[in-house]
Design a protein around this nucleic acid. Structure first.
Lengths: 250, 250
DNA sequence: CAAATAGTGTCTATAAGACAATATTTC
DNA sequence: GAAATATTGTCTTATAGACACTATTTG
């Protein structure tokens, strides 16, 4: 049997298969000015030259999918390693409808979803391409390249669900955060107001979600209010019990 | 710009890319004799000739991924269309580690997860290949082809989670079922006993999960007990509130 | 001081889980 | 009749959400 496989390998002809390509595309979400934003790239090359698209590119021959996604994340966001360590990055879904890429090569794309903390820099593009954080509201009036509008919608939907059962809301804030900042993540991603008092009690009661640092913010809120206690992530990945969306419960 | 893209298309050279291939592989789960089973195929061709693998194959040029998965499901299970309509089939995850396929073609596989109702036939293979429902316990002592053991584990894990928040347990039973049969699905997939009384009340209380047919089984249980009422799926896809695994709640 | 916000207290409705009870049915 | 099972009842505890209250801080 070993000989049979070796024999078969010799006669194998790669070009018998119609050519296909595999890319990774990233839905990188962050929160800026109390709005959900996504990182978009203005394409410098055809196809869709000049249009906005999700960052991404071909998977290199020696790379696993997750490696390719991590590489793209690093290249496109220009985040420092310390920040990158705290970024959530996980596979979202794969898209491969014939014709989704106009090139004479059928391209499948494995979409990844990432949650980034607030980044001060407006985003550094690696090459001549233009990169920008776009608010989700803004993207709804744009036509994105390829099927990226569909991928983006899928990513946002996944993000909304992730917040319920996981502690990933902490990926959107800094290493130390107040309960209000965490609540803001939920409110922005879910697009609904939460009850501050109940949210506060809930978060601190879920085992392992957050732990106190023992310190507080330097100042109160912009328009008044006491200083808030600072928390850090408590190590739990899954929330028990979950933090369910109010609008889904009905 | 239109001219620029047309120009670029002409100069484009597909063979500049190293050759890659894309397959779909299916984790098809069903319940037989109070055990979770998966459909496996004994490979008739290299690579891994003679070893057991998940059913699957190359995505055809004109096919979308979901279409390819549905085609493979139909071909490999030999299920009738009426049964196929009730099978759950959804994308699981994509795998593409370099070297996962020994051929001189890099193969990415998009794994799909399917839940099938009890099928009387032992499974009809389309060609010379041997196909069989294997219990999960049995697969743990086997070496599966490619990285299919990893894919299978991922599928089982996803199945366990799906039961909590969705009504997909009904995909494992016939169009009409008793609460006990449904409970059996949960017990087998989760691998733990559930309280019959509490489970019963819970299931009938979740809005839209099941609805009564007004009829009962013809006979009681094998070893006694009254006839059970027959239910059908009530139309809800998400469960509110969810049916959480006892062992996860602690 | 007025307004805003952090954090806590309290009460109610709902849900989960333990346990028991009753009615049917099979061998 | 004995054992098994479907279904319902009851009680306790945990949780979610509504609402109110106090303390602290900013302009």
């Amino acid at each position: 049997m070993k000989e049979a496989e070796a024999e078969w390998l010799k006669t194998y002809e790669p070009r018998a298969y119609p050519p296909v390509g595999v890319t990774v595309d990233l839905v990188i979400l962050t929160i800026r000015d109390k709005e959900l934003h996504v990182l978009l790239i203005e394409r410098g090359e055809p196809p869709f030259k000049g249009e906005w698209a999700l960052p991404g590119g071909f998977v290199q021959p020696d790379e696993d999918l997750a490696e390719a996604a991590a590489r793209e994340l690093k290249e496109e966001t220009g985040l420092k390693q310390t920040d990158l360590d705290r970024v959530y990055l996980d596979q979202l879904k794969t898209f491969g409808k014939p014709g989704r890429d106009p090139r004479p090569l059928r391209v499948f794309t494995v979409a990844y979803l990432a949650f980034a903390p607030q980044v001060p820099e407006p985003v550094a593009g690696t090459d001549a391409k233009n990169a920008a954080w776009m608010s989700l509201a803004a993207t709804r009036n744009m036509k994105l390249a390829f099927d990226h509008a569909e991928i983006l919608a899928e990513g946002v939907e996944r993000a909304r669900n992730k917040l319920e059962y996981s502690s990933l809301a902490t990926s959107f804030v800094g290493p130390e955060f107040t309960i209000s900042e965490l609540r803001n993540v939920y409110e922005v991603v879910w697009g609904e107001q939460l009850h501050p008092g109940n949210f506060h009690r809930k978060v601190v009661s879920v085992d392992g979600y957050v732990e106190e640092t023992g310190r507080t913010t330097e100042r109160g809120g912009e328009r008044g209010g006491p200083r808030a206690r600072l928390y850090r992530w408590g190590g739990a990945t899954q929330l028990h019990p979950a933090l369910l969306r109010p609008s889904e419960t009905t």
